[in-house]
Nucleic acid binder design. Structure first.
Length: 432
RNA sequence: UCCGGAGUAGCUCAGUGGUAGAGCAAUCGGCUGUUAACCGAUUGGUCGGGGGUUCAAGCCCCUCCUCCGGAGCCA
């Protein structure tokens, strides 16, 4: 066999040529003509095996192939007589690895079963599409910041204390230093980088040990956290909006096949690119919620229902800013015009996907932070290094965190974030 | 942690007190253009665990376990 080995994605360039494909049998429909649906990771193609064209042993083998058998096959690339899509007219076929009783059949399955078989579920067309979009979004995030002059400053995953002091943390014994905690945010470690690099970001896994079981929570998720020196609240909203549009644009340009597999309605994504994001202060949002029938009180954080009610009334992403200080992190800069408020901004995604970005301006006054640490009953000695930033050339600065999985869920319009990670970690899900 | 729902064949489910069923998968056979192909046959079950009521329990009661959805919390 001297036919060139090609990937399925390149088949349109090989029409009329004899090539070799390598992959797995997604599905086999056998009549006198055997139709093998092949997957090789780069795409999907139908291979046609008839007695008149194929070698006799190959033809016989094609009739016995089970779901997920690994094969190589050689044949002529031709256009499908009905659809015009490339297909392979098989000449010869070799079994590389057989497959007996593959658990995920072509019919429906429940999520519990699929999650237990996540390592196999990855092979399905839908998961392939989602995880390739995740890949594209992760790449877009890196490209966006790299092209914008940011320096990647990796934050540690093992940390000595809570960054925000509120959420539950996973802990582990760290030699004789006591307990270490898995990081729930890299932000505090970005701030010292500003005086060295001006603009930094970290992008990696973060951990929350919250016992939350909802469609938008994982215990392990990826977050990108940019931080910018001399930046204010307004800069956060401008940067977050540019990033969001860049990510959406990359997917619309490069992942059309995957969006089609997911049957994603493209109109809301195209709207996101075309419009300026809406903005409301927290106080305005509460007033709007009252109009829409919510009984939220000023000073309370939005509940899930509130976010849904609010976003159902919007046709585009919404920035909510100037939150009450009481439910925001200790390091947020207070509003100089109203000390009850903090200079924070959250971006709510449309179509019910909720908070995708959370961020704001950081407190730059040493005394203010000392008061906050005392007020929140945090241990000052855990934060001495962080406080140093306010002693040696303190400047206004701001940043945000964007959750990758929530962005993937929104852009793919998925019912649950568990499909956005290759191996999602949730309360009650640790394997595979 | 709280509220609601569900555990029956490998998978998805039907079966509400009287001898355990279907579709898919698997196995065998048929079909020359199929697209979750189709047609016929075969194989496959301690009905989540434990206890109770009853002549009789998949079905009713108690309890435990697991999973799903939602709340709180958050990206």
């Amino acid at each position: 066999m001297s036919a060139p080995i090609v990937e399925i994605r390149h088949l349109p360039q090989h029409l009329g040529q004899t090539v070799t494909l390598r992959g797995w049998v997604r599905n086999a429909r056998t009549s006198k003509i055997r139709f093998l649906e092949l997957r090789d990771g780069s795409g999907f193609v139908q291979c046609v095996c008839s007695a008149s064209e194929a070698e006799p042993e190959s033809y016989e083998l094609a009739g016995k192939l089970t779901q997920e058998s690994a094969i190589t096959l050689t044949g002529l690339v031709q256009a499908h007589p009905k659809t015009g899509a490339p297909e392979l007219l098989v000449k010869s076929l070799t079994l590389v690895g057989d497959s007996v009783d593959y658990p995920i059949t072509p019919k429906e399955h429940g999520t519990a079963f699929l999650m237990e078989n996540r390592h196999l579920w990855l092979r399905s067309k839908r998961q392939w599409a989602i995880l390739r979009i995740r890949h594209t979004l992760a790449k877009a995030i890196r490209d966006f910041f790299d092209e914008d002059g940011f320096t990647l400053l990796d934050a540690p995953i093992l940390t000595p204390s809570a960054c925000e002091g509120t959420s539950t943390l996973f802990s582990t014994q760290y030699f004789d230093e006591g307990m270490a905690f898995l990081s729930q945010s890299g932000q505090l470690y970005q701030e010292p980088g500003l005086a060295a690099f001006g603009k930094t970001y970290c992008f990696g896994p973060t951990f929350r040990a919250e016992k939350s079981k909802t469609r938008r929570h994982l215990t392990e998720f990826w977050m990108v956290e940019p931080e910018v020196a001399f930046a204010h609240l307004e800069d956060v909203m401008i940067l977050g909006e540019r990033l969001t549009k860049f990510m959406v644009q990359r997917v619309l340009e490069g992942r059309q096949e995957e969006l089609a597999i997911l049957e994603r309605d493209l109109a809301p994504l195209e709207t996101t690119l075309a419009v300026t994001f809406a903005r409301m202060t927290y106080t305005e949002a509460v007033a709007k919620l009252h109009e829409l029938g919510s009984d939220i009180n000023w000073g309370e954080d939005f509940g899930n229902d509130d976010e849904t009610i609010l976003m159902n009334a919007m046709d585009r992403p919404l920035w909510v800013h100037h939150f009450p200080r009481v439910f925001k992190a200790f390091y947020m800069e207070p509003d100089p015009l109203d000390p009850k408020l903090a200079l924070g901004a959250d971006l709510l995604a449309p179509e019910g996907y909720g908070e995708v970005i959370g961020g704001g301006e950081r407190a730059s006054s040493l005394q203010y932070l000392l008061d906050q640490i005392e007020h929140e009953k945090l241990d000052r000695k855990d934060y001495e290094w962080y406080l140093d930033i306010r002693k040696y050339g303190s400047v206004p600065h701001a940043g945000f965190g964007l959750g990758l999985e929530r962005a993937v869920a929104w852009i793919c319009k998925l019912p649950h974030v568990r499909e956005t990670a290759p191996y999602p970690r949730m309360m009650g899900t640790l394997r595979p």
